[in-house]
Nucleic acid binder design. Structure first.
Lengths: 238, 238
DNA sequence: GGGCTATTTCCTGTCGACAATACGTGTGCA
DNA sequence: TGCACACGTATTGTCGACAGGAAATAGCCC
């Protein structure tokens, strides 16, 4: 027991920010797998760590629960949501569909300003790849695709897609622990092709690229799973 | 001020059920439009109404907020989420897509047991139509399509679709205030066709029926909006 | 010695109270 | 008469404390 742990923040935070900051920090740690799936999240311990009452902690946990990032066991503790490998095939289906829909939508509504935003995200992604920074790479990839979704202009798609991408960050995190950087470079190139197709407002080509991109990612992760986790998963993935 | 309002429940509820019951009740009232969009939800007043402390109320409101059913104004009150007619076209897009995906998926995995569940929901829908019970009709319709989605076996789709259908319940509620029952009967028939196509595992026909069904609903609601709300919306809907 | 039961202990669910913030109201000044 | 500022009020955000359940432990009986 460390004596008088100096809490996460000593500055007396502003009024509404308690829940928000806890939510943001925990969310980041869960997605980065700093908090392993299944880890127990004790309200009392969290309140000590963040130097605040249990109330904001509870609200943050509730929001994380709504995001599907933690699981609350009634009258017991809450744990970081586990990754269910059996549900990967449905996940890939949904991800592929949203890749396609958002990319198609973006191609239909491309504007120069929006392309600038997308290009910025792509530059960040390329920089992260060059720096071999897996975490930044995954995050930039998410922002890149969300930017495309926002261009598509359907907030229902954007919200759902963002959630899928977030959930995938943990899986990618597993995957990229063993990656060689040949594939990320390929992703950079594919992103460039997508940008070109969207800018040209070529819906069909955008769609094909989205499919290809999704297949690429799905295949790599499946290979990784088959390689590192053995046969039992093969069945579920087939 | 009514003297000693007898609260919603006088029985001393079980431990975990406070938040849950408030959430369920408020959710139902919001979806049924008993609580009008934009209505303020005062924590203190709600705590008096339900005869419990503000804490469970807050948690219920937080969950509703995560569902997008209420909007929280920081440091101010929370209100029932307003219906944004400008975002209807994206909504219809998303709804159509999910109709298609879930119906296709169901056709690919049809089993006799699952068909029984779907038929049960369809019977409830038909009964509600016959009884001219708009609320039951809308609810049964939701359950019917969710049952199809569950047969499709992709929980990501099911969750997203259920959320879309719930959001649509409020819009349908507006619409069905003026309905003549010719259209609901048509929906019953279309549902029957969908069941047949799914059972026959005819993916393409299921897809076509889903598109047709979605178009039917979208067109009716658009007509209603154009008729009752005038031109300003026409622009947004176009 | 093993299995069942009582107890203890931890953690969550709920409560009432306090503090801070934003809005509405009233007043003063130009 | 209109606007700006200060004050009061109402409602939320946060806190510390208490009570209820569930798991873990100890005790007891067979």
């Amino acid at each position: 027991m460390a004596k008088n742990e100096p809490a996460e923040t000593d500055i007396p935070r502003t009024r509404g920010s308690g829940t928000q900051s806890v939510y943001t920090i925990l969310r980041r740690e869960i997605l980065a797998m700093t908090l392993a799936p299944g880890s127990p999240l004790d309200e009392v311990r969290l309140s000590e760590r963040f130097g605040m009452s249990r109330t904001p902690i509870r609200e943050a946990l509730l929001r994380l629960s709504a995001d599907g990032l933690v699981t609350t066991l009634p009258n017991r503790n809450t744990i970081v949501a586990t990754i269910d490998f059996a549900s990967l095939p449905p996940y890939f289906d949904a991800l592929t569909l949203m890749y396609r829909v958002t990319t198609r939508g973006a191609a239909m509504r491309a504007t120069p300003q929006a392309m600038g935003e997308i290009r910025k995200r792509q530059a960040e992604f390329a920089a992260a790849v060059a720096a071999h920074d897996a975490f930044a790479m995954i995050e930039a990839n998410r922002e890149f695709h969300v930017a495309i979704a926002e261009l598509a202009g359907n907030s229902y798609y954007t919200t759902f897609f963002a959630r899928l991408l977030d959930e995938g960050r943990r899986i990618l995190r597993l995957y990229y622990r063993t990656f060689d950087d040949r594939l990320p470079r390929q992703y950079v190139d594919e992103h460039e092709e997508m940008i070109a197709a969207i800018e040209a407002r070529d819906v069909e080509r955008s769609d094909r690229l989205a499919i290809k991109h999704a297949e690429q990612i799905v295949r790599q992760i499946q290979d990784y799973i088959a390689r590192d986790l053995g046969q039992p998963i093969d069945l579920a993935v087939s």
